[in-house]
Amino acid sequence: MSLTETPNPPASAPPGPLAARAEGATKIYGSGDTEVRALDGVTCGFEKGRFTAIMGPSGSGKSTLMHCVAGLDDLTSGQVFVGDTALGELGERQLTQLRRDRIGFVFQAFNLVPTLTALENITLPVDLAGRKPDQEHLDEVVRAVGLANRLDHRPSELSGGQQQRVAVARALAARPEIIFADEPTGNLDSRAGAEILAFMRNAVRELGQTIVMVTHDPVAAAYSDRVLFLADGKIVDEMADPTADRVLDRLKQLGD
């Protein structure tokens, strides 16, 4: 798996089984005059082993959708599923365990615990579960992100790109059913960003990982297999095998 591979859109694949899905997901903040419908009856699915990007202008509800599907936020109405598990029926504790065991996260920034070494950060979810990490898989992930010689370093001793690679490695290490990435390259320069994106795409291709990424960057979205477009809390379009130009065009239409 090479980290510097250039974007190369894959062939469109038929819809497969879903890793997670939303049904009539509605999220309302406030009430009365100040009511804001962040999600307005969204129904969508994220196929297993595919790289899905969620795009939309700010305030479109893309982050809210991700947070709700990832069990970080709850819906006003509707339901979200990870596998066959309906998140709305889970208690706080079960949701936490679901995030730990079945979901991986990559945030835009502040992804790592500053007091833990890179390796400790990578194995954090596994450690929290009190399990032994799968050493073979761990070695593979570490080698893939190219951090083998930086494992003892604390986050403050790593560059921004390296920190994000550690974050991706953490998300992969626990072999989650689905990884949610929230603007994972938002804080990186384009070269470091390209590395991360290529690495994520390869994780999908070669390890069969499922990844859902929220982004506003058409170049980033171009690494995905499929793009969902959100506007005003609704899914307004989707695009298979995106390229940066096509995504940009589509976004321009949405903006109008």
Partner: peptide, 12 residues
């Protein structure tokens, strides 16, 4: 940091 820990699965 606490939010992050809770997000990646640290229980209360």
């Amino acid at each position: 940091e606490l939010g992050l820990l809770r997000a990646v699965g640290m229980t209360r």
